[in-house]
Design a protein around this nucleic acid. Structure first.
Lengths: 166, 166
DNA sequence: ACTAATTGAACGAACGATCGTTCATATTTA
DNA sequence: TAAATATGAACGATCGTTCGTTCAATTAGT
């Protein structure tokens, strides 16, 4: 037990390799079209060894969903700043466009959502974060509306609700 | 050749039964979690007989996607009317909210989109209609903006792009 | 009108492939 | 050497699809 760091480090490295492989395969083929053999091959490790790092395929899916949730968290914090709502909204839209225009992310999100709608416990973090995000967003837009004097306000609020909801 | 309708009718009836079963199972479990045996059982016909009505599972998925595309078509026509853009937008939002709040439809849409993003040829109609829909929508909102004198216009157009895009 | 021939819907066992997972075994590390 | 890690063959289950067969409905022949 003199130097236990080497082992841990390499174990962690393998795990990350596996996560990277999962991110790639899941985005490309979807959760249920990706086999554990696909993941093992892409990560360059053996099939059996996958189970030394993740107990099951579901565990891996859950991990991926959790990572994507963290990605949303970054944007969520952007909405927490307290300056001009219009600025905040602009910043958010830029960030969000950036995020959604990444093909890999879009594919994964679609996968997670369609999985999460069916078995919420698998993607708890992701869906929960998403709800919080929607709440924040509509709050910002609410503030923006109150600051605006006139016009087609109703369409705008509903619009905002959809931006993330759909 | 006195009465050749009987056979055709019952064949068509079976086919519709199968489509109904597919709509239910696909929405509940997703395309790839639903087996042909699931569909046969739900439709009350035998496994082998499924293949007398649809050549493959992919054919069935395509058919379901096509049906959903028709559903979108209904809303699409609503956007084609030429009266006040604000009214049109309002009507659209109501219809669209109605449609999206149906759980079965939401599940199926998520499934189709996440499938269609990966293999577009499977869901051609659906994705194509969706694009047209987005085009129409942003046109309407564009008109609405030009009619409006001031303010945070930019946020609104991007908003519109997202409403269906995300 | 009666019968023989033809069709195609319906069935479910069976096929080969592949799935997630396990396990006995070999290799590497401490 | 003892323990951790890696391996890939093997397992049972299930997948999409095919197959030979049955049988009722339709058409053609007389």
């Amino acid at each position: 037990m003199v130097d236990s760091t080497t082992r841990e480090q390499s174990a962690k490295a393998r795990r990350e390799l596996l996560v990277a492989a999962a991110l790639h395969c899941f985005a490309e083929k979807g959760f249920h079209q990706t086999s554990m053999r696909d993941l093992a091959e892409r990560a360059g490790i053996s099939l059996g060894n996958v189970y030394n790092h993740f107990g099951s395929k579901t565990d891996l899916i859950r991990e991926i969903a959790r990572l994507e949730a963290d990605g949303l968290n970054f944007i969520y914090e952007e909405l927490n700043r307290l300056d001009d709502p219009a600025n905040t909204l602009d910043r958010f839209i830029v960030l969000y466009t950036q995020m959604c225009s990444d093909r890999g992310h879009a594919l994964l999100s679609a996968e997670i959502i369609s999985e999460g709608l069916r078995t919420p416990e698998i993607c708890e973090d992701f869906l929960c974060n998403r709800e919080v995000l929607i709440g924040r967003l509509s709050k910002i837009i609410g503030a923006l509306e109150r600051a605006s004097p006139s016009g087609h306000v109703l369409a705008e609020t509903e619009c905002a609700e959809f931006v993330l909801d759909v």
